[in-house]
């Protein structure tokens, strides 16, 4: 009962924050509403028994990626200029495309959930999302992808430095 109330509250918060992210004109307001949406998503992770994932999500998204976004917006001084808007036709086309995608996915869910509704009730125990369990899995079964992701980080670091450097003769 308690988790159900929390779920609906967090869902409402996430929905409202996502809509405000999309609809606000100022890029800084968009980025700040995105922080709210990220915290709501982290709350959902806690409800879904993935506590370590929630912590990583807050640290990486609300900490690192948000700082990158705000730093870029402020460095380029984009906070004053209001964004030029598309015509109403393009917005309508985007609304139709997003709505059709939503309808297709919900329809597929309705179709599949009628067949497999019997085994949907499995809920795992509370220790499965803690860092001890995940660390064992990550360093035993997924060791190679883990190390490869560190190489990916190094490549992204070098790429960001090369792209952000001033060109010669500029």
């Amino acid at each position: 009962m308690m988790s159900s109330i929390l779920f609906y509250g967090l869902s409402t918060l996430l929905f409202a924050a996502a809509l405000l992210v999309i609809l606000s004109r100022n890029p800084i307001h968009s980025a700040l509403w995105l922080v709210t949406a990220f915290f709501a998503v982290a709350g959902h992770y806690v409800l879904l028994n993935a506590q370590f994932l929630a912590a990583v999500h807050v640290i990486v998204y609300a900490g690192a990626i948000m700082v990158l976004f705000l730093f870029t917006i402020m460095l380029l001084n984009l906070n004053k200029e209001t964004e030029p808007q598309h015509s109403l036709l393009v917005k309508l086309a985007g609304l139709v495309a997003g709505g059709m995608l939503l309808v297709v996915m919900v329809g597929a869910l309705r179709r599949s959930s009628a067949e497999t509704a019997s085994d949907l009730a499995t809920v795992h125990s509370g220790t499965v999302g803690l860092v001890e369990t995940l660390g064992k899995v990550l360093f035993r079964d997924f060791l190679l992808p883990f190390e490869l992701s560190s190489i990916l980080f190094l490549a992204a670091l070098v790429g960001a430095v090369v792209l952000g450097k001033k060109e010669l003769g500029e």
Binding site: L14, F15, A18, L19, V21, I22, P27, S30, A31, L34, A37, Y61, I65, F69, T72, I73, L78, E83, P84, Q85, H86, V90, K91, A93, G94, L95, A97, G98, G99, L101, L102, M105, V106, L109
Partner: peptide, 27 residues
């Protein structure tokens, strides 16, 4: 999750700002 994804698709299709597009992809 589907609703969140659809909101992101709408934003990615209608934003005209490059940073706004990236924010929609995050969603």
């Amino acid at each position: 999750a589907f609703a969140l994804f659809a909101i992101g698709v709408y934003g990615a299709l209608t934003r005209r700002h490059l940073v706004g597009l990236l924010i929609s992809i995050e969603l």
